[in-house]
Design a protein around this nucleic acid. Structure first.
Lengths: 181, 181
DNA sequence: CTAAGATCGGACGCCGTGTCAGAAAATCGA
DNA sequence: TCGATTTTCTGACACGGCGTCCGATCTTAG
């Protein structure tokens, strides 16, 4: 992807691009900011800590999968371009760090409530699970044709519940089971 | 990283580089091939299916972590450069696919033996766990200073055992327990 | 209709790439 | 030892994308 390629699809010239963005990475950074807020919003059920934890987790994960269905290519662009640009690199790692933060906080909270084993290192587990989510979701939904959202959700949900809550509950067949609190 | 940068560190000129490699991506592809064989070798204990599964899994994961300690920067280079080059992209996805294949095979085998729940989708779980390993290991060991191998191993081991074997066994404190069958 | 401000596009210099033809170095036969 | 042949290296080149000018065009208001 070059600036020329991009602007050829518009009725504007290449230099016009630099009127609005300092370069391609700047554009991507703007797009990232736009989707981040949506992301945190849809993940709210589990992050807020209300209701039955596993059901809430599934709701949140469902939301995350949906956002990636809608904006997967943007995340792919960000993650692929990040290594090439210092500024974008920082923006991307700040994004994932904020995600680690909220997940870590939720885990620690549920550890205090006795819902999650205190022997877990909340930070590292959160980080590892988020790494998994990020790359799997980008791989599945980052380019067309996109993967099967239901199957991806089931897979991620199984691993998260197994890792956090012990795994007995969620290891069931790919059968629809959206519990309520 | 440019070809000029690279060759400046040698006593040869820039064009000499093209005598041995068609371009930078070609070089990276060669490096990838060199580490892949080591990787499969060190992961042999669990993949071969001999001995007690969880202990064998930990041995294999320990090996994988060690290889990444030694060659992490190479994996980082591959994964970051892959999106920029069609050929390298294929090499990298072929690498991860082979990894998915052997893990899937092992899971299915242990499902037949009743060690792992048959309700799991072996392929997708293997794929998700491998995605987690890849990015976490690259993030931790892909650049200096590198992360703490013991902590990373514990984290990955917990999630793998929880996801595959139900999580009751491995959710213990970060205490050393590499036992045999 | 005209002047002021905002926006656009052609053209330029820069840098990294990959590829020549020819120089230098290594190898070898006598 | 010495020239001939093969291998290895180098300086110089064309290409393409980037980011930035200045002059041209369009918009808006009086």
């Amino acid at each position: 992807m070059t600036v020329a390629d991009l602007m050829a699809r518009t009725r504007l010239s290449r230099p016009a691009f630099y009127q609005y963005f300092s370069d391609l990475h700047d554009l991507i950074e703007v797009l990232l900011r736009e989707v981040e807020s949506i992301m945190h919003q849809t993940a709210n059920p589990w992050l807020s800590g209300e209701g039955e934890p596993i059901a809430a987790l599934r709701e949140s994960q469902k939301g995350v999968v949906q956002v990636c269905l809608d904006h997967g290519p943007i995340f792919r662009a960000v993650s692929e371009a990040a290594p090439l640009d210092e500024r974008l690199e920082r923006a991307w790692s700040a994004f994932t760090k904020r995600w680690d933060d909220v997940v870590e906080a939720r885990i620690k909270s549920q550890q205090r409530d006795g819902l999650i084993s205190k022997s877990l290192n909340a930070r590292r587990i959160a980080n590892a699970l988020n790494h998994m989510d990020t790359t799997l979701l980008i791989a599945e939904f980052g380019r067309r044709p996109q993967g099967d959202p239901k199957a991806v959700l089931d897979t991620l949900h199984h691993i998260w519940t197994a890792a956090l809550y012990g795994g007995q509950r969620a290891a069931r067949m790919p059968r629809k089971s959206p519990r309520k609190s």
